[in-house]
């Protein structure tokens, strides 16, 4: 490559960059203006279905509107979202080269202080998770929050080298992961078989059913979070796809 070519190339790159900045900047600005104008033009007053959702709250089995929406009014959406979590785990398994954790070696024991701290924190985290789960009936809380806290406990066990999910068998892990999705599935099939609308909860027993489904969902969410941390590419086991290849592919 001659010097002349190099100069040309540099100029070309600069010109392209300029075009990009101008276009992207103008576009982003215009989009932002559009959104602001749209929001300013929104109708005044109480938003959407909040009032109606509150009005029907007595028939939902829970006292907190958000939980009612998530697990009664729109439980179908929540079911699909739990499905998203299951899919995330499957995607991780796909990257690792198998739907099993047997080649995850136990983490080396770290320093004793961490172990001590873990021992102290795990019961507290578990308790918090249970509280959050139960709280969902009346106040902000519920399966997702509880699941993440419980999952954090699992991850912590793993990071400190204490026996954790990796001691649980392959089949059991899969059951724990799927149990949330299955809970909704069973509810859907059972309600159909009982002659109700799909996923319709009879008002009298709605509270219990919701708590049960939420508990199972919490278990799945917690397991999912813990497995995500355990099975990450950073963990000891070699991932199915060599990072070297990925780098090479990314450059092309």
């Amino acid at each position: 490559m001659t010097r002349h070519d190099a100069t040309l190339r540099r100029r070309r790159r600069r010109a392209l960059l300029r075009v990009r900045i101008v276009v992207a900047g103008a576009g982003a600005l215009a989009l932002a203006l559009l959104l602001v104008a749209a929001v300013l033009e929104l109708p005044e007053g109480p938003l959407g279905l909040a009032e109606e959702a509150a009005a029907q709250l007595a028939h939902t089995g829970v006292d907190h509107a958000v939980t009612a929406v998530l697990l009664n009014y729109r439980s179908y959406d929540t079911w699909l979202e739990v499905g998203v979590l299951l899919l995330a785990v499957m995607a991780i398994f796909a990257l690792r080269g198998g739907a099993h954790l047997e080649n995850v070696r136990p983490a080396p024991r770290r320093d004793p202080l961490l172990t001590w701290l873990t021992r102290l924190l795990i019961p507290m985290l578990t308790l918090t998770a249970g509280y959050l789960l139960w709280l969902g009936k009346f106040a902000p809380g519920g399966a997702f929050q509880a699941g993440v806290v419980l999952g954090a406990a699992g991850a912590m066990l793993r990071l400190s080298g204490t026996p954790s999910l990796d001691r649980i068998g392959d089949v059991a892990i899969r059951i724990l992961l799927a149990v949330g999705f299955l809970a909704f599935l069973v509810a859907a099939v059972a309600t159909r078989l009982a002659g109700l609308d799909m996923l319709e909860l009879p008002p009298g027993r709605a509270g219990d059913i919701i708590l049960m489904v939420e508990t199972l969902a919490t278990i799945s969410i917690a397991t999912t979070c813990a497995v995500l941390v355990m099975a990450m590419p950073g963990a000891e086991s070699p991932p199915a796809i060599a990072a070297k290849d990925v780098r090479k592919e990314a450059r092309t």
């Binding site: 109606e52 959702a53 029907q56 009664n72 009014y73 729109r74 179908y76 609308d197 996923l199 909860l201």
Partner: peptide, 9 residues
């Protein structure tokens, strides 16, 4: 679904 007609369900 869920026994709630739209818009709630």
């Amino acid at each position: 679904l869920s026994g709630w007609p739209a818009p709630l369900g």
